[in-house]
Nucleic acid binder design. Structure first.
Lengths: 222, 222
DNA sequence: TTTTATTTTTAGTTTAGCCTAAATTTTATA
DNA sequence: TATAAAATTTAGGCTAAACTAAAAATAAAA
């Protein structure tokens, strides 16, 4: 398998991420275009190219999904991204809102040996700084049993275990309200009028967050 | 200053390296083409482009040299390359013959903060694993007082302090003959017939090397 | 000092990866 | 179910960075 360009790798990665939250794993051209911040026409071009390389299954006007080999590559890119993010936060002392952009570049460095040694160096971490699972060398991903905070029930105890890392703005907001991974969270109330949510954090701190914010957080049941 | 492409950065880096071993710092199109493994025509194209951006001073049929801003960028790329090589060897346990290729990629990651933090993490090393000086954040390079082993005198004591890192084959050869940085070297004899050189390493080991090999090694006087 | 050889540049192509505008297909609505 | 709206593709174009072949400038040799 010839090595792919960074652009091709990115397409596979985003197709994978979108397919995880779509019906039957089918990704629409427009959704991909929005993610990539490219025109839909450009996306169509690339999908044809990836289809020729048997990395995706693409049907005109219908959508795209990853083939087995496309999936393998996508997962390895994700593995690299998340291992690099872990290194940047754990070792280089970046904050979690600073690392996504840099990892977007580092994930395309071509060297299996590099990422294996980095994995050793970091002690084979299972999760990255945002709580996302890090695929292992074989491509296995431990899918953590989490639910979106927006869907969580009243009065129950949860642990904040995963946040959306794409937007630095959102992570900075979490820093500001002093919410971090592994905080204990209970939903005290949900306001129907404006859909805000009242939280109790670590059994003491009171916090009001928007539905938008809650949709970017994932919690596991205690 | 808009950020440059990896390709443009590479041109500046190689112009810098060639200018250090050329007369008056003028680099010829063909020499650059040979280094880059591109056609001379492609090089001419790029030199015009870099000239438009005021990164090089280019005169048709004559040659090219770096401007002040071109030099600054070249040195920063070199700094990144050498810091990454240091990290790969010191922390990730790569051997010195494995790191050049990977650093060629890593040197183009765009993030000042990343390289500053890496420099901190490594403890501000002055030399990379091949003995090349690492430019500091301001671009200052400590020029070590070394001479080429091929030009060294008979019977004098030297320390191996710098090797050519471009060729993995050469570094592997050094591994094989068990010669490493900081070894004590004395030239026992120079054979005029085939220009081989007899060495005594660390006062005991006898070694015969070719002139080609000697030209890739740099030593400092004890 | 001509002539020849070498180096370098110019001219014209190619490919990857993007774009806009127009055409087509699918989906939603009246 | 016909028509309007939305999504998607096609067509044609652009730029960066490479190429080859031919022309021009410089350097070397007779």
């Amino acid at each position: 398998m010839a090595t792919l360009s960074a652009v091709e790798e990115n397409y596979l990665k985003y197709i994978f991420q979108l397919s995880e939250v779509s019906e039957k794993g089918i990704v629409k051209t427009n959704d991909l275009a929005y993610k990539l911040e490219h025109s839909a026409a450009s996306v169509t071009d690339m999908l044809k190219k990836l289809s020729d390389k048997k990395l995706v299954a693409y049907k005109r006007y219908y959508g795209v999904s990853l083939t087995k080999s496309g999936l393998q590559i996508a997962v390895q890119v994700l593995r690299k991204h998340r291992l690099w993010e872990t290194f940047l936060v754990k070792n280089l002392k970046f904050t979690w809102d600073q690392v996504h952009e840099i990892a977007e570049q580092l994930e395309h460095i071509q060297s299996d040996e590099l990422i294996d040694k980095m994995d050793d160096y970091l002690g084979h971490p299972k999760f990255d700084p945002h709580g996302d699972p890090i695929p292992d060398k074989m491509g296995n991903i431990s899918v953590p049993n989490v639910i979106c905070l927006a869907d969580a029930k009243l009065k129950k105890q949860y642990i904040l275990s995963n946040v959306n890392d794409d937007s630095a703005a959102f992570l900075k907001y979490l820093n500001k309200i002093q919410l971090q991974l592994n905080d204990k969270i209970k939903i005290a109330d949900k306001e129907e009028f404006d859909e805000t949510i009242q939280l109790v954090v670590n059994d003491k701190k009171q916090l009001t967050i928007s539905k938008d914010a809650a949709q970017n957080m994932f919690v596991k049941v205690v």
